[in-house]
Design a protein around this nucleic acid. Structure first.
Lengths: 298, 298
DNA sequence: CATCGCTGGTGCAAAATCGATCCGGCTGGA
DNA sequence: TCCAGCCGGATCGATTTTGCACCAGCGATG
């Protein structure tokens, strides 16, 4: 009889393309993956992978196995979500995934309030980079900014939130200096991989052609605070920062709509319902801030 | 992450009704089953069984899990049977790569025979231009003309076929006209990128210095049929065409040796073996034609 | 009432698995 | 050309899992 857990390792290797990448994802050492794959191949009596110097590559037999392994994984995920969905106790784990800026600049105090309100709920905030997959049960609730409603996954249940607008910001001190006639050049601050959004105009100030590139949003904000130049930010970040002001003459632009996403089975649990209701209430209160209506224009 | 193999133990208990009966069926001690069920319940955070003195009985949550566990088992069984039945089954895809002239002028009727003989084999002939890579699984079998045996990839398994010769051909009518003293110039017909092979002499006929260039082999053959001039062709093309004759006084030249190439893993499958045996038989029968020995010299 | 056959549960030693390195080979970019 | 960064594979001590014996409870049966 084959070990079903070997198939989980097989899937990881088939996806990762190498034993080491698979081990990384599985949270084990590559030697373990190596042995489990060897064991699976031995028990099935067929090679699942070609062992190339560049990694493991599926054989024709492996391709056929992959299909069924995916089915097994789907059943396993369903199994987990169904068991989780039956859980009506408040006590337990609740995992929330959302974009880092939303967590650090807006919702973290609300999460703290929620945690104080329900001490039995163990909360886990997944705001590290990329979006977690609800269907794979990597998270229970996702908070996402969606521009086109059609891009929402159909299998998820969505609760619509307020709209999010962004604008062009610079340091308050820098704006004053510029008005006083300071000669230093004003530059665009952009995240390397993004570039300057096409909707962003420079308003009254003029920038030099050379942008200042940062790797992430936090570095970008710090750079703006230092008076390095102008950049685009969500209003809930820029308006909430006392050191920043909108660049005169620039317009707001819609980033998208906030959605609270949950998965069919997990949505039934009490703590997920409690959380989504709590957060959607807070989000509604934040609507003016998110829309950029909370401050008077300069 | 749950251990998928725990689900196999869960299934055994759900069916056997008791831990000991399950252990019996699984070929392990009942304590092992006991621990794995405990581990599964802990990781899922829910009780799968009521622990009665008379045995283990599924809870409501367990009933729901059972459904998905059965799905996983079905996939697992399919997986095993598919891997096991892979080698024996003739059914499936078979991709063959070879040079276009070999396909169009020699082997296509044989491929058709093979396809009729084995209706369950889905055949795909890849004769479009460049040679497919067996190692990359772009094809299962390659038929190639190789001049130097050392150029064969070491990781492939080769089955040697007959040798292929080529000669210089022209239109039968044109040769008659030339002998009758027709004044039209006779030209070399060459494929643009190839040029005139150094081994090809013009024999009795004399050509003008200006060659006629075509883009591909088919256009070259049509041009020769039209009496435009002389060209080099493999014997199995030129000798088989009733409209063409060898240019008197020219010699044959070896193009190379035919090889049937297969890749280590796919070579074991039945359909690949059937195909290589079939084709090598046909190729052996074609040996005189390929060597240019099938016709009497003019 | 004793016994037999079944049940789940537990402690401990043996066996299998895993973690942690080290190694040599291949590849792509400097 | 060299070198850094991957890759798979082998090794060995540490850890986890398993086998195994033994226990108590329950029910039927003689």
């Amino acid at each position: 009889m084959i070990d079903w857990d070997d198939i989980r390792h097989f899937l990881a290797v088939a996806r990762g393309g190498s034993v080491r990448a698979a081990a990384e994802g599985l949270g084990v050492y590559h030697s373990t993956v190596l042995r489990r794959i060897a064991q699976l191949e031995e028990r099935l009596g067929a090679q699942m992978f070609e062992k190339l110097p560049s990694g493991y590559r599926l054989t024709a037999a492996g391709e056929e196995v992959l299909e069924l392994a995916n089915q097994m994984e789907a059943s396993s995920h369903q199994l987990e979500t169904r068991v989780f969905g039956r859980d009506q106790s408040v006590r337990g784990l609740l995992r929330v995934t959302l974009a880092p800026p939303l967590a650090t600049h807006l919702l973290m105090p609300d999460f703290a309030d929620f945690a104080r309100l329900h001490p039995d709920i163990e909360m886990e905030i997944l705001s590290s980079g990329e979006l977690a997959n609800l269907t794979n049960r990597e998270a229970d609730v996702a908070i996402r900014v969606v521009y086109d409603r059609k891009t929402l996954p159909l299998n998820l249940h969505g609760l619509k939130g307020p709209e999010v607008f962004g604008g062009v910001y610079m340091s308050r001190d820098r704006l004053a200096a510029w008005r006083a006639g300071a000669p230093d050049p004003i530059r665009w601050i952009v995240i390397s991989i993004h570039g300057i959004p096409d909707w962003a105009s420079e308003g009254e100030v003029r920038t030099t052609g050379v942008p200042f590139r940062t790797t992430d949003a936090e570095a970008q904000i710090v750079a703006v605070r230092q008076g390095l130049g102008i950049t685009t930010l969500p209003c809930f970040v820029g308006d909430a920062d006392p050191l920043l002001v909108r660049v005169p003459g620039t317009d707001l632009h819609m980033y998208g709509t906030l959605w609270l996403l949950t998965q069919g089975e997990t949505r039934k649990t009490k703590r997920v319902r409690l959380f989504t209701e709590f957060v959607s209430g807070r989000l509604a209160a934040y609507a003016p801030l998110l829309a950029g209506l909370s401050i008077s224009r300069d």
